[in-house]
Design a protein around this nucleic acid. Structure first.
Length: 284
DNA sequence: AGGTCTGTTACTGA
DNA sequence: ATCAGTAACAGACC
């Protein structure tokens, strides 16, 4: 149990990425990016040489798309950052910085400060694109709607699920259906909506799809709120940005009592990923 | 030492 | 072409 729970805190999903983005925005927006130093040849993919060439540019905008953080520079170049499964960003003072294991990219900015990208498993990515190419890029071109954006409507979700013959758990984790819902919040959303994760997506009633729509949004918003509250003092115990203690109702709680009915939480594997649910509260 | 865990893409086959 | 299922990636932790 213990190692699993520890791992949970290290996997960024949409709320964590949103929190990281807001933290970067708070510290770096309007500052000058002096230099980018790359200490690894590749993460998930090659880190482009052009990243090293970014010097003395003002940072004019931060945004998020799915689990990607976008940092826009005044030259209309955009740095894309994905944290993968173990990526972290820490702020450091240039004077006192000591390179840690897995520190791969250093963003020197402002008054001798550094935003350090650290990623043990190297499943993340850092790339730089022209602003006009971002939406149609390899990374973003086939992504579905943002769960907290206007395109993710109840009608959209119901209609999309009707065409899908995978389990509802797998369906809401598919990026084409909706972005940003990873393994943790998929289980949490289905528990909140009282829907069994093995239910075929196309078998959801309209009422179930609408309830799930509501729950996905609520679960993500609650997590973002929890993350936002940690931003007041972004330098946490381990110094990492965007990681916060958040309690889950089913995730990682196999054999523990359901908070609603006291039945034991069960675990199954769906789409190669562990899935947690209450067999009594979540009907198939 | 070998299993587990994760997000995303690539591959395979229907 | 599209969909669904599976393997792979890397490193930490037991």
């Amino acid at each position: 149990m213990q190692p699993l729970k520890k791992d949970i805190l290290n996997v960024p999903e949409l709320p964590e990425v949103e929190t990281v983005m807001r933290g970067l925005e708070k510290e770096m927006l309007g500052e000058t990016l002096h230099h980018v130093s790359v200490h690894a040849p590749k993460l998930r993919w090659e880190i482009p040489i052009s990243l090293k060439a970014l010097e003395n540019e003002k940072i004019i905008k931060f945004s998020r798309r799915s689990k990607y953080v976008l940092m826009e520079l005044e030259s209309a170049k955009v740095i894309l950052i994905h944290l993968g499964m173990s990526g972290k960003i820490l702020f450091s003072e240039g004077k006192s910085y000591i390179k840690q294991k897995h520190d791969h990219v250093l963003f020197y900015f402002g008054n001798k400060r550094i935003a350090v990208y650290n990623d043990a498993r190297r499943f993340g990515m850092v790339d730089v694109l022209e602003k006009g190419d971002v939406q149609d890029s390899f990374y973003l071109k086939s992504l579905g709607p943002e769960p907290l954006g206007g395109c993710f409507t109840k009608d959209y979700l119901y209609n999309t699920l009707q065409k899908s013959r995978v389990s509802i758990k797998v369906a809401i984790m598919q990026q084409k259906v909706v972005v940003g819902v990873g393994n943790i919040y998929a289980s949490e959303s289905l528990y909140a909506a009282k829907i069994h994760p093995k239910t075929l997506a196309c078998n959801l009633t309209r009422a179930q799809a609408e309830e799930l729509h509501t729950c996905i949004i609520q679960v993500l918003k609650n997590a973002i709120a929890a993350g936002g509250s940690t931003l007041k003092d972004y330098v946490q115990a381990d110094g990492a940005l965007g990681y916060f203690q958040h309690s889950f109702k089913v995730y990682g709680r196999e054999n523990e009592p359901c908070y609603h009915c006291k039945d034991e939480i069960k675990k199954v594997v769906l789409g190669q990923r562990s899935t947690f649910f209450c067999g009594k509260c979540q009907i198939q």
